[in-house]
Design a protein around this nucleic acid. Structure first.
Lengths: 202, 202
DNA sequence: GTCTATAGCCAGATAGAC
DNA sequence: GTCTATCTGGCTATAGAC
């Protein structure tokens, strides 16, 4: 899937509403979101929001697309490098030693939306897509590396699933606990796992 | 920390309210929880809830304790076996090949509560506790195994962090996506990682 | 301890002017 | 497209009887 096909054409007004929703979500969380609070985050009235979206649910589905598209676009960078660099790039992006504030806020929003996937099918499908994209992308990098002799001949799909689970677990830990040293420990351990599983020459 | 010290003394009425909250949470989710809906889940009126709890926030904090205590009690089983069995027991419990419905619903509730930890300090502290407990417990199992010669002499804390991140990532995947084969793949890969990291004799 | 009734507030959504 | 004004209903929380 290309970036273009995943990205909707947002009108200016709609993009402004999405940005306002993002700010309201950061300030009040999913359970504290309201149309009034979204309207307070930009220069239009709340009635104008109903011109662009039929209902709050409709707006939330669009917002889910908006946030997930951003994540996918960001993730797609650097995956076309040679297998070794691509894998390093991906790991560094998904488990940074130190996450900047913008990424951190984005992950806060994502985890709140993800928790809705337990009850809402449209949300569930989106997060299924995200995890499939992560696994498929990493799997393809590993397969390319096996083909050109960079990596050992492992079960690429199994290793990719392991990496994605570890990466996701680390991210959740980062945004829902105060365990500040944990992400770096996982990063080191994950790189060491990848080295011994894919790059060792025994 | 013993199970007793972690478990509060819930009165009968309070336990009934907690059970009702649990059912309401399953049906409506965190953002759909209301005092009326909780009252509808048992045989008392909503005013009676305010006799036992000062406010909705107060009730939610008690509910967080209730759910987390259950999780901790459940997790504590089997960790006192010999290191090899204890590690296997823990992994099988945290990444079951097939999760039964009760466990699954419990994890759904936990992830919704966990997502609140991004905005609420009391919630954040609880989930910090949970992850610390998981890491510490697994770390101690590994250290016991190293001492008695069952396991190789690895950095126990680092391996424990890796295992916990992978386990948590797998659980989130299970409750927020439709990727039904993913948990089993992670389980196999995780066991293989543990074997080669701790149990190999090269 | 539990009830019914209700106060007061804010939500989602719509009407109709411009 | 955006506004102000407003409807309806559910929410948290309390009052006061039993």
């Amino acid at each position: 899937m290309s970036i273009d096909s995943a990205t909707q054409n947002w009108s200016t007004a709609e993009r402004k509403i999405m940005e306002a929703t993002y700010r309201a979500m950061l300030e009040y969380g999913y359970s504290g979101l309201s149309i009034s609070r979204i309207a307070d985050q930009f220069d239009k009235s709340k009635a104008s929001i109903y011109y662009h979206y039929d209902s709050k649910d409709d707006l939330l589905l669009a917002f889910l697309d908006f946030v997930v598209d951003r994540f996918k676009t960001d993730f797609a960078e650097g995956v076309d490098e040679d297998p070794n660099s691509a894998l390093t790039t991906v790991i560094e992006k998904l488990v940074p030693l130190r996450m900047n504030d913008e990424e951190f806020q984005g992950q806060r929003v994502l985890i709140e939306l993800r928790s809705q996937a337990t009850r809402n099918d449209a949300f569930r499908e989106k997060f299924t897509e995200i995890n499939e994209l992560l696994v498929r992308t990493i799997c393809e990098i590993i397969e390319r590396g096996i083909e050109n002799g960079t990596f050992r001949d492992v079960e690429a799909a199994r290793v990719a699933e392991h990496i994605v689970a570890t990466v996701n677990g680390s991210t959740i830990d980062r945004v829902t606990t105060d365990r500040e040293t944990a992400p770096a420990a996982v990063r080191i351990s994950l790189v060491s796992y990848i080295d011994s599983e894919l790059r060792s020459h025994r």
